[in-house]
């Protein structure tokens, strides 16, 4: 045995193939990972495989036909466009709310903080019918807007308004921990160097929060683009005008056009994932620059 081992010393380090897992004395790895993989395979991979494979039944042309139909394109543009706009507003308002919750003490702060998560927990259908009523011709806000000649419900604007609630918690919850952990000495240092509050915020605090804001933006965008329940009641669903992309899928399915439905679904997932990848790339670039 010792003789066997000696050449290794003499020859320095014999490069050995790295095993696929590090050995550990903790038990249960095979069972836990096996169950995890089985579950991921059946619940996530198999369905996604179907989503990836089904659109091609009529070849590439079939997919293109399904996606490039004016009605589909309009729906995709509405879903992703409204989500994009709403995500920008969410970033601004989410930052403000996170700031107020983190920096100011006021009565009821804890309740307000908890309420921020309501769009996470509130079933989307509930939010949907509430918004449709609220902004409808007889609703508290809808009636007031109607007097000013503004129509929100059953228009593309309605989609945007509905997504304002959907994305908000993503931004607030992404920013809050970073804001809480922000070193107070950073702000103090900026102040001792003569920066006014606006300069301190714009040049010290905002850059530190930027990665979290981008994360929140991406999550709000991805969630908003796919949103169905909160939007469907207020959207109006007029093809080509106020019809959202998920509704196109539902309509295709009702016509048993599986390939068409899958094409739109795959396109939606692809756009969302591309957006997330792009955001990741931006963040990696930023973290390099920031040396973190």
């Amino acid at each position: 045995m010792v003789a066997l081992a000696t050449p290794r010393v003499a020859g320095g380090v014999a490069p050995r193939r790295r095993p696929w897992r590090e050995p550990s004395v903790l038990p249960g790895f095979a069972g836990a990972l096996g169950f995890t993989l089985l579950y991921v395979g059946l619940i996530i991979l198999l369905p996604l495989a179907a989503l990836a494979a089904r659109p091609w039944e009529h070849g590439l042309q079939g997919v293109l036909d399904a996606i490039l139909k004016p009605r589909t394109l309009a729906a995709l543009r509405l879903s992703f466009g409204a989500a994009l706009l709403a995500a920008f507003v969410n970033v601004a308002m989410g930052l403000l709310i996170a700031w107020v919750l983190g920096r100011y003490r006021f009565p009821g702060r804890r309740i307000v903080d908890a309420l921020v998560d309501l769009p996470f927990a509130l079933p989307t259908a509930v939010a949907g019918i509430a918004l449709a009523t609220l902004y409808g011709p007889n609703g508290w806000i809808g009636a007031a807007l109607a007097r000013g000649g503004v129509k929100v419900a059953f228009t593309p604007t309605g989609v945007f308004v509905a997504l304002l609630a959907v994305g908000l918690p993503f931004v607030v919850r992404a920013v809050q921990p970073v804001l809480d952990d922000l070193d107070a000495s950073l702000e103090e240092a900026a102040q001792t160097l003569g920066a006014n509050p606006v300069q301190t915020f714009a040049r010290v605090i905002l850059p530190a929060l930027a990665p979290a804001l981008i994360t929140g933006f991406a999550l709000a965008f991805a969630r908003g683009a796919g949103e169905y329940g909160s939007v469907i009641f207020i959207a109006g669903n007029m093809p080509g005008v106020s019809e959202i992309a998920p509704l196109v899928i539902v309509t295709r399915l009702e016509q048993y056009d599986y390939a068409g439905a899958a094409s739109v679904g795959l396109a939606m997932l692809a756009i969302s994932l591309l957006a997330l990848v792009a955001v990741n790339a931006v963040q990696v670039a930023m973290s390099r620059r920031g040396g973190r």
Partner: peptide
């Protein structure tokens, strides 16, 4: 007695 242990390419114990 004569314990060897290597982590990847890193020899942690060499005899």
């Amino acid at each position: 007695d004569g314990v060897y242990k290597q982590f990847g390419r890193f020899p942690a114990l060499t005899g």
